[in-house]
């Protein structure tokens, strides 16, 4: 598996898009920090970018890679390698190279700016960790779409739809249902609804750091338990992990039974 990972990773690291992605983040980091000169503001802007853009890039990259590396996959399938290794290796290669671009693209300008001396380092690290998780999750979801859809146009459509749903539509439905049922206790509902969408989950995780003052304004006991203690952080992190592991597990499960 490590060999496949290595080749996928090298292959991607050499592709133009990895550079574009890396340079985009590098540029973004520098612009945010050196034009603004304000770490707190940069962290907030970054959060908006990370929860929207990272899933999108992860999805698009993941689906593109799957369809484009079909021949590579078939070449590998005839080799004495278990399928699990082929697909896990490719997945980790894509997710790894994307995470690499994200972490280093943003990390370098922040380190140059003097992040280690700033007290925003925890916020920033949290941002990067969440970004890494989102990359892994959405790449895995994209792999799932690709592996279940032979038709690339269809697969691509589903992938974009998935992103749109998770990033925007879901929250719209969420808001509407909250307002419609406002007479009922909604604590549990809203927490569960948050946990079921990795984008919302990551956003909440960052909110716990950036906007804890506002979150504590709400009176609900369950909310308070969730946001006021470390329980929120732990549960959110566990759910993110679940969101990563389950799709990855499904990749392997489907791949083992698929005909090529």
């Amino acid at each position: 598996m490590l060999k496949i990972l290595k080749y996928s990773f090298y292959d991607l690291m050499r592709s133009r898009w990895s550079y574009v992605y890396f340079l985009f983040y590098l540029l973004l980091g520098f612009v945010l920090l050196f034009l603004n000169n304000d770490v707190s503001k940069a962290v907030i802007t970054l959060m908006n970018i990370i929860i929207v853009l990272v899933p999108l890039i992860g999805t698009i990259f993941g689906i593109m890679y799957c369809y484009n590396s079909k021949e590579f996959t078939e070449l590998l399938l005839a080799q004495p390698i278990p399928r699990r290794s082929i697909f896990l290796g490719q997945y980790l290669g894509v997710a790894g190279s994307l995470t690499f671009s994200l972490v280093f693209g943003l990390g370098i300008p922040f380190v140059i700016y003097g992040l280690f001396k700033s007290n925003a380092i925890f916020d920033f690290t949290l941002l990067l960790v969440t970004g890494a998780f989102l990359t892994m999750i959405f790449t895995a979801l994209a792999f799932n779409i690709a592996i279940s859809n032979e038709n690339r146009i269809k697969g691509f459509g589903y992938a974009v739809l998935l992103w749109l749903f998770m990033a925007v539509i879901y929250d719209g439905l969420f808001l509407i249902s909250l307002i419609l049922f406002e007479e009922y206790p909604l604590d549990n509902f809203s927490l569960v609804a948050t946990l079921l969408n990795p984008v919302d989950l990551s956003r909440t995780l960052i909110l716990l750091k950036l906007d804890i003052s506002a979150l504590l304004g709400y009176t609900g006991a369950v909310f308070k338990q969730f946001f006021g203690t470390n329980a929120g952080l732990v549960i959110s992190a566990l759910m993110l992990l679940m969101w990563t592991v389950l799709p990855v597990w499904r990749i392997v499960f489907v791949a083992k039974r698929k005909d090529f």
Partner: peptide, 20 residues
Amino acid sequence: YIVNRTPETIILLRSLFMDI
């Protein structure tokens, strides 16, 4: 305003949908 009316919606703070 929405949060004043339905406090639970605070959980949607900083979401893309709310920004729009």
